[in-house]
Nucleic acid binder design. Sequence first.
DNA 1: GTTCATATTGACAAAATAGTCGAGTTGACT
DNA 2: AGTCAACTCGACTATTTTGTCAATATGAAC
Lengths: 221, 221
Amino acid sequence: MAKVNPIRRAEIGREKRARTRAQLIAAANSLFARQAVESVTVDDVVKEAGVAKGTFYVHFDSLEAVTAAVAEELVHSFDELLQPGRVSLAEPALRIAFGCCSFIDKALNDPRWASVVARLAAVAPKGGEMARRRLFEDLQQFSKALPDDGVSAELKLEIVVGIMLQILRALGEGRLSSLDRDAAIGAMLRAIGLNAQEAKSVLVRLPAAPMLESSSRSSTK
Amino acid sequence: MAKVNPIRRAEIGREKRARTRAQLIAAANSLFARQAVESVTVDDVVKEAGVAKGTFYVHFDSLEAVTAAVAEELVHSFDELLQPGRVSLAEPALRIAFGCCSFIDKALNDPRWASVVARLAAVAPKGGEMARRRLFEDLQQFSKALPDDGVSAELKLEIVVGIMLQILRALGEGRLSSLDRDAAIGAMLRAIGLNAQEAKSVLVRLPAAPMLESSSRSSTK
DNA sequence: GTTCATATTGACAAAATAGTCGAGTTGACT
DNA sequence: AGTCAACTCGACTATTTTGTCAATATGAAC
C-alpha cells in the first residue's frame, strides 16, 4: 500500500537538482578562470563538474545559459556583500569609493575571482547591468554636486568601469599583485572630478570594507 | 626553348601570395569587428576572404597565427600614424596625451576599428606589448617629475590602458558616440596625478592630431 | 601558344562538439 | 524490503570544424 507524498517527492528532487546545478555552475566558473569564455565547451564543463553530458542539458539549454547563471551568481553574491555597507552612505562619492574599494579588496584576495569577473564582463553585459545602473545613478548625483568639469556622467561611468576592469584583469593575470588599494581609488576619484585633497578626504572617511569570505564556493543558499 | 628567369618567377609568386595573405588578414579583421575572436573559425575566414580552405593553410598555421597577424598590422599601422608626431614632443605628459588623443580620434572616426582593437587587446597581449612598454616609459618619466602621489607607474599604466580600452569598447558598441575627446583626456591626466589646471595646460598645448585615413583597408604597402 | 614555378582549389578523412534518449540509480517513505 | 518520482548516466547520431593533398589554374617569359 505504498502511499507516498508526491509533494515531498518533488522537494527531494529539487534538492538533488540544486546540488548538481551548483556543481555545473562551479565547474563553468573554474573554467572561465583559466580560458576564454567562448572557448569553453559543454564537454569541458561536464568533465570538470564530474557529471554526464545528459545531465548538463537537464539543467541548461546551452552554454550561454550556464554562462549567464555564473554571471548572475557572481553579481548576486557580490551584491549581497556590498549592499549592507552601501545603504548607510549618504554621499555619492563615498558610495562610489566604497563599491570600488570592495571590488579591489575582493580581487586582491581572490585573483581567480578577478579573472572570471573580468572575462564575463566582456561577454555578459546583461549580468552587470544592474550594478552599472546603480553606479551611473551615483555618478549623476555626484556630478550635480560638483562644478561642471565638462565630463559627462556617461563618460565618467566608462572611466570608472574601465579602471576597475583593467585592475581586475591585471590582478587576475598576476600583474600588480602589490597594488595599493587607496592609490587606485584616489586616482579613480580624481579622474571623475575630485581634486587631490577631496579625494583624500573621501578615502579617510571610508568605512572598513566588508569582510570577504575566502576564495572558493561557499555561498549556496 | 623555354628559358625563364626563375628569380622573376619567384617575384611574381611573392606578389600574388602577398595579395592573398592580405585578403585573409582583412577578412579576419572584418570578422573580429562582428564577433568574439575565439568564435571565428577557419571556414568563416576563408568564406569572408573568398578563397579556398587550403589557401588559408598555405599562409597561416592556425587561427592564432592570422589573429596575431591582424594584431600586428593594426599596431604597425597605428604606430606609423603616431610616431612622427610623438618624436617632437619632449614632455612626457604631452606624449601620453597625444597618444591617447590619437587613439580616441581614430576610434571616433572608425568604430569598427575600435571594436577590433578592443577585442584583440583582450586576446593578443603580445601585439600591444611594444606600445604598452613605450607608454610605461613615458609614465615613469612623467611620475619622476611629479610630487609623489603614492600611485606607482605600474598602476598608472593599468589605469590609462583601462580607460582607453573601455572607451574603445564603448565606441565600438555605439555607446558614447558623442564623446568629448578633451574631457576624456583631461580625466585621464587627472587620474595619473595632474591637477585640473595642469591637465588643461597640457590639452591646449597638444598639437593637432595626425589626420586619419577613413575607415577601411588602405595601408597595404 | 607553350612552358613551368608558384599559387590556388575543393573534395576528403579525421577530430571535436552538440544534442538526444532509453536504461539505470537514488533515497525518503511506507 | 518494496515503491516510485525525479534525477543521472553515457553511448549514440548528427553536425561542425579542422587539417591534408593531388589536381588544377595562373601568367610572365619565351
